[in-house]
């Protein structure tokens, strides 16, 4: 959804590292199925992608990824409670209209949830705002007037969001240029990967 559909996004490796081998996975907003394909190859996972776009659904069929065409905003009614080990929402949270609902649905359907999102608190984003403009970067490639990203947040915002709702964060990796950031992640991290449970 952020326009990054390359063969390997920086968050993919972090997601792969945070899941068990052979897990059953639901990838929400799976795009052309690249992540699931990658996880099938690297972690022997099984599972499905959920995708709304016709072209992406076709791409999933082409690449042998099992895909369910559906609008995430409608919830995950097709999926039973706790039927997946992990429910992944990579680079899509910020484009969801109903953020809280999808996070709740992820926890209903999966034993754990994994979200990745561009950290709006990254210093380069702050700098662009200081200069008077909405940030545009590799991770936030859209201009303000045509962005699908309506719910951007910072690392600190997401942790506050989870804390207030009793959502337990069980893992966090913050990345810049593919490398893990351990110091001042909300300032120095470009991309956040969170794993959480109910």
């Amino acid at each position: 959804m952020t326009g990054l559909n390359g063969s390997q996004r920086p968050d993919f490796a972090a997601i792969a590292q945070s899941i068990k081998r052979g897990a059953h996975i639901l990838d929400l907003g799976c795009g052309d199925g690249t992540l699931l394909k990658y996880l099938q190859q690297t972690r022997s996972v099984t599972g499905y992608g959920v995708e709304i776009d016709d072209g992406n659904v076709l791409a999933c069929v082409n690449s042998g990824v099992y895909v369910i065409q559906s609008d995430l905003e409608r919830g995950l009614a097709e999926f039973a409670d706790h039927s997946f080990d992990y429910v992944v929402l990579s680079q899509t949270l910020q484009a969801m209209r109903n953020t809280e609902r999808i996070v709740r649905e992820m926890l209903r359907v999966g034993r754990a949830g994994i979200v990745t999102f561009p950290n709006f608190g990254y210093w380069k984003n702050r700098l662009q705002i200081l200069r008077g403009h909405m940030p545009v970067s590799e991770n936030l490639p859209f201009e303000w007037f045509d962005t699908p990203n309506i719910h951007l947040c910072t690392v600190a915002d997401f942790e506050k969001f989870c804390g207030e709702r009793g959502i337990r964060i069980v893992g966090r990796t913050v990345l810049t240029d593919g490398r893990t950031v351990n110091v001042l992640p909300n300032l120095l991290g470009e991309l956040a990967v969170y794993q959480f449970g109910g």
């Binding site: 059953h24 099984t46 499905y48 016709d54 659904v57 999933c60 069929v61 099992y66 895909v67 369910i68 065409q69 559906s70 009614a77 097709e78 999926f79 039973a80 039927s83």
Partner: peptide, 20 residues
């Protein structure tokens, strides 16, 4: 979708497309 759901319950190798 009812069929899809039942297949998902069984972890079947299901693909679902809704053509507009």
């Amino acid at each position: 979708r009812e069929i899809v759901r039942a297949l998902l319950d069984n972890r079947a190798r299901v693909t679902y497309a809704e053509i507009d």
